[in-house]
Amino acid sequence: MAIDVKNLVKSFHDGDRVTRVLKGITLSIDDGSFVAIIGRSGAGKSTFMYQMSLLDEPSEGDVIVEGRSTNEMTNAEETKFRLEKFGYVFQDYALVPELTAVENVALPLLMQGLPRERALADARAALTRVNLEAHLAQLPSQLSGGEQQRVSIARAIAHLPKVLFADEPTANLDRESSDGVMHIFGELHDAGQTIIMVTHELEYAHAAERIIRLDDGVVVSDERVPATERKRYPHPGLQAA
């Protein structure tokens, strides 16, 4: 799924004061690519991701997904689109505290109308994919930060989304757990998953094949990372997480 961003502007109003956070961004994300969006704090990288991922509506410009302008989508269509086409990994894991790991992952699948057993089976498969098959019945409070983030990834990929959005996925994790998350992203990308990741950690950005740097709401650089320079994160770190 390709995402085309055209002259994207996002402004926030505070009384009479208008703050332009994104100042006319135009770019395309190719299907199957792994893109890292970097920049200093306040550069607009998360805001940019929220517009692309339909979590927010741009003030001006357009985001075109699968040939459709998101400006033309109703709220219900956007919700359905997010449910079926996108997956999200948030900085603070964002798991429902009363649901076990497998229940958290199964939730969007149930919302898609899958029968309960099928949803739970797919959720188990997704958790196995992130090496959490031994923690299926545990509540988020019983898991470490790294494990919670892996549950979050499992929830984001269980329904085989077209695009996986990750907003600072390693910001709250220790080194070992962060490496584990990046290992999973690497594996997913190898399998053809489109990934758009916001990060302020340059090292992890080098796991992507393309790095877009924002500053003050504009794209200041957009570089391809040669395959030889891409950083790969090994499996053992994941297991220790």
Partner: peptide, 16 residues
């Protein structure tokens, strides 16, 4: 509220 927002974000309908 944050969790409700996240649920909506990941595609769980407001009605649900």
């Amino acid at each position: 509220r944050k969790f409700i927002g996240i649920l909506k974000g990941i595609g769980i309908s407001g009605e649900a």
